[in-house]
Computed example of a mutant assay.
Amino acid sequence: MASVVIYTRQFCGYCSAAKKLLETKGAKYVEHDATYAPDVRQKMIEKSNGGTTFPQIFINNIHVGGCDDLQALERAGKLDGMLAA
């Protein structure tokens, strides 16, 4: 199973939707909540090459993007392959 990391913040509908999609796929993920942690947010921005919106998702250290990007991978039939790698 792939290594999945997701940077989130509390009360974020997109974060909840992304986590729900990952959970329906049976993917385990490491969540970093940046709500009250500016250092975690800064690390997310650096790791994602400037991504400041939530969530920011990484699969096998590859920056996928946000919730819309994750859902686009699912619609294109590519998410399962990435999660299986």
Rank of each mutant, 00 (worst) to 15 (best):
D68G: 08
Y36N: 15
S3Y: 08
Y7H: 15
T53W: 10
K47V: 06
M1I: 08
A2F: 08
D33N: 14
Q56F: 05
Y29T: 01
A18I: 12
C12G: 11
A18C: 15
N60H: 05
E23I: 11
F58D: 00
N61M: 02
T52H: 05
G77V: 01
F54Q: 09
Q10K: 15
K19F: 03
A85T: 10
P55L: 08
C15I: 11
S3I: 02
V30F: 11
G81Q: 06
L73W: 01
R41V: 04
V5G: 01
I59S: 00
H63E: 02
G65K: 00
S16I: 11
C67R: 05
A85D: 08
Y14L: 10
R75Y: 03
T8K: 09
I59D: 00
I6H: 05
G13C: 04
A76N: 05
M44G: 11
K28S: 14
G26Q: 04
A18Q: 12
I62N: 12
S16Y: 12
L21K: 14
Y29E: 01
V5L: 08
L83K: 07
A17R: 10
A72H: 11
K25Q: 07
R9D: 14
N61H: 04
G13L: 09
K25H: 15
D69S: 03
H32M: 09
T24D: 15
I59T: 00
I45V: 09
A34L: 14
S3Q: 13
M44Q: 08
I62V: 14
A72C: 13
I59H: 00
G77T: 02
F11K: 13
K19W: 05
M82V: 05
M44D: 07
S48F: 03
A37H: 13
Q10S: 15
E74H: 10
C67W: 01
Q10Y: 10
K43G: 09
T8R: 06
Y7W: 14
K19G: 04
N61P: 06
A27C: 07
E46P: 06
D69C: 00
F58N: 00
G81H: 10
A37I: 14
L22W: 07
V30E: 11
S3C: 03
E23A: 13
Q56G: 08
S16G: 09
D80Y: 02
L83S: 02
Q10G: 11
L70S: 02
A2P: 02
D33P: 06
A37Q: 09
Q56K: 06
C15W: 03
T53A: 07
E23L: 09
S16W: 10
G65C: 00
T53Y: 11
G13H: 03
L73V: 01
V4Q: 00
G50T: 06
H63W: 00
I45T: 10
L22N: 09
T24M: 15
V30W: 11
A37P: 12
G13I: 04
I62K: 14
N61Q: 04
G66D: 05
L21T: 04
A2V: 07
K78T: 02
D69I: 03
Y36L: 15
H63S: 05
L73Q: 01
N60S: 03
N61K: 06
